[in-house]
């Protein structure tokens, strides 16, 4: 992908993992994203908060091309997402090329989306074997390590239906990590969990952040955003209303819409 410069040269030099320029997305006549400009540095943990329908999940899904960007540009690790640029023209990437881009981006979903016909361990082993062509032994060895890392070494043979929500989400994190991604996307990872199970998932995410993983987290957990996040982005109506250091944005929101939202959730 190096034939043509994919990204403004300075962006890579700045150590940017994600760079979004005026990203727009429509669903039919509804404008969901109205020009998002955001950058995520290498190793940064960015938390995106906002009311439902604000476009925060849609933006997250644009980063790994689960949604097609309608206007603007989005780069991940220096590569334009979903397209190849030659001169002024954009060419859609082929399905295999899109799949190759996604290998480096892990994603964790609100509803876990574990594969129900496979055990927890098989869930974690599947992608490295299929996508990277790893041997069964190598994939199994690392899957076992990852299961231990998320605190589930005694649950490897269980099917997802035999696990609690919190355990399922931790398996989902291990499954994403098995591809050794450079970037992890979290789409409201604790929103479908019983309150007492939220902590175990946030603990795993906190460890991940401490180890230097670049993370973009769409969440309603303001405590997590304050404690773990390097930056906080407040979105509403398809635009970034306010962003900054989490502690400052949460304690002293500048914009009226941010103040109104935070007064309801804090």
């Amino acid at each position: 992908m190096s034939e043509i410069m994919n990204m403004p040269g300075d962006a890579l030099a700045d150590g940017l993992m994600v760079k979004a320029e005026r990203v727009c997305k429509n669903f039919g006549h509804v404008e969901v994203l109205k020009g998002i400009d955001l950058s995520v540095r290498q190793g940064e943990v960015m938390c995106i908060v906002g009311p439902s329908g604000s476009g925060k999940s849609t933006f997250l899904r644009c980063i790994n091309h689960l949604e097609k960007v309608d206007a603007g540009r989005l780069w991940v690790d220096g590569h334009l997402v979903g397209y190849r640029q030659r001169g002024d023209k954009l060419y859609e990437l082929r399905e295999k090329e899109v799949a190759a881009q996604r290998r480096d981006i892990g994603m964790v979903f609100q509803r876990f989306n574990l594969f129900p016909h496979m055990t927890a361990l098989q869930n974690v082993m599947e992608a490295p074997m299929l996508v990277k062509g790893e041997s069964r032994d190598a994939a199994k060895a690392r899957a076992e390590q990852l299961m231990e890392r998320v605190g589930l070494s005694d649950r490897m043979g269980n099917y997802p239906s035999q696990l609690s929500g919190g355990q399922q989400q931790r398996v989902a994190i291990a499954r994403a990590l098995a591809m050794q991604p450079k970037l992890m996307l979290f789409d409201e990872p604790t929103s479908a969990l019983d309150p007492e199970l939220v902590g175990e998932v946030l603990d795993v995410m906190r460890d991940l952040a401490r180890e230097g993983m670049t993370m973009v987290v769409v969440t309603h957990e303001m405590g997590f955003a304050r404690e773990v996040g390097d930056s906080l982005v407040f979105m509403d109506g398809g635009v970034v209303v306010e962003q900054g250091v989490p502690r400052e944005v949460l304690a002293n929101p500048q914009h009226a819409r941010t103040q109104a939202f935070l007064s309801k959730v804090l």
């Binding site: 399905e95 799949a99 290998r103 299929l130 996508v131």
Partner: peptide, 14 residues
């Protein structure tokens, strides 16, 4: 479930 397709896509499966 459509989420299965998405999870597989996100992992880089064709």
């Amino acid at each position: 479930d459509l989420g299965q397709q998405e999870a597989a896509s996100a992992l880089g499966l064709t």
